[in-house]
Nucleic acid binder design. Structure first.
Lengths: 205, 205
DNA sequence: CCAGCAATTTGACACTGTCAAGATTGATTG
DNA sequence: CAATCAATCTTGACAGTGTCAAATTGCTGG
């Protein structure tokens, strides 16, 4: 059976075949448009053309669905990191790209970002093993990047872990304050983060 | 009519007299205990001993109530700032106290803090004029403090506004990542913010 | 003691997440 | 080819939720 026949069959079904994937991406869209607060499983089901409770065969919970969306976000962010590391830029530029990329990712996908780093998901038991895995891995990678930039004398600070935590904190804070509209008169969050960049460097150039 | 008779009368009523204040403080407690998500107007009403919709005579909305709680939080935080500025400490120590105080306030009142800086309230129309006022004032005061610390050569950076935004971003980010449990293995958020402190200073002492 | 006024309650509605049980589907056998 | 089967999806139901309109209560001045 070829891929084509699979697709044709799926289209001819009046139930979906790949409901899980469909639900996740539809939910991601709805969240991006109207905010995470206003996502209801029922509206989602209607949009996808399926009954209210269909999602419960693929997700334990509403929270479970949200975790899947967040996990997707982490995968996308990891791809960005891969791409960055594949570049042949000078390390100083890589660091700058990393910082700008982080802010750009956060401000262009604010709702998904909130899902990735908002309390609801990280805390306690409300976190899928899948999400726990990928988020942990992602943070580990970022620590290693900072560690490397410190080892070549680019980034300052003594403990790599602490420095990674500070840098991440700064990026997260600026991103969130910007997203939430607290920096009322700032056009792009990049303006702020660029002025923060020298703080992290050994030589302020 | 003395204060006593007022209180006696209020107690003898089986309706409350000062429902508004009662509602705000009860809601603040409930939020502190079980999180902002799980606050419902109906449970709040039951706790206060009043009917489901009583709150609607003092607040337009549930959101309006939340704004009142947030505004209270800002008032408390401003008092902390007053107290700090009244001290006769060296400025370098004041700056440190400011930073530690911010983190301490945020981590000890996580839910209230979320209300003060979470998207739901700042953004767009979902913000009471009262809240808008006091939050604006508070930020203004913090900018002035940073401005002063820059003018005496303590804090680095060229634009005071930008530096205030960066510092605030860093504090906010570290506070939030800590509150949300992202710094899995960190005991106190102060550990991290203390290692970030030198970044802001002209001389790294 | 009663009219009027403000504070509070009751009733109602549309929405939400979630569960248990039933119905439908496409695939797999005899 | 037809009948069965397991997976997939749907229907019905329930307890919550925020919020509005209308009814009710309690207090105060005449």
């Amino acid at each position: 059976m070829t891929l084509d026949t699979v697709l044709i069959k799926r289209n001819s079904n009046f139930h979906h075949g790949n409901l899980r994937q469909t639900l996740v991406s539809a939910a991601t869209n709805m969240i991006a448009e109207n905010g995470i607060e206003s996502l209801s499983l029922r509206k989602l089901a209607e949009k996808v053309g399926v009954s209210r409770t269909a999602a419960y065969h693929y997700f334990q919970d509403k929270n479970d669905l949200l975790c899947a969306i967040a996990a997707n976000g982490f995968r996308r962010w990891q791809q960005s990191l891969d791409q960055l590391n594949a570049n042949q830029l000078p390390e100083r530029d890589k660091f700058e790209q990393y910082i700008l990329g982080y802010i750009s990712f956060a401000t262009h996908n604010p709702e998904e970002y909130e899902l990735m780093f908002g309390r609801c998901i990280w805390k306690q038991s409300k976190c899928t093993p899948e999400l726990q895995d990928i988020s942990h891995t992602t943070f580990q990678r970022q620590v290693e990047m900072i560690e490397y930039w410190q080892s070549i004398g680019l980034v300052s600070g003594d403990s790599p872990l602490k420095m990674a935590q500070v840098i991440w904190g700064t990026l997260h804070g600026i991103a969130k304050l910007f997203i939430d509209g607290v920096y009322a008169d700032v056009g792009r969050a990049e303006e702020i983060v660029i002025s923060a960049l020298p703080m992290f460097l050994v030589s302020k150039l």
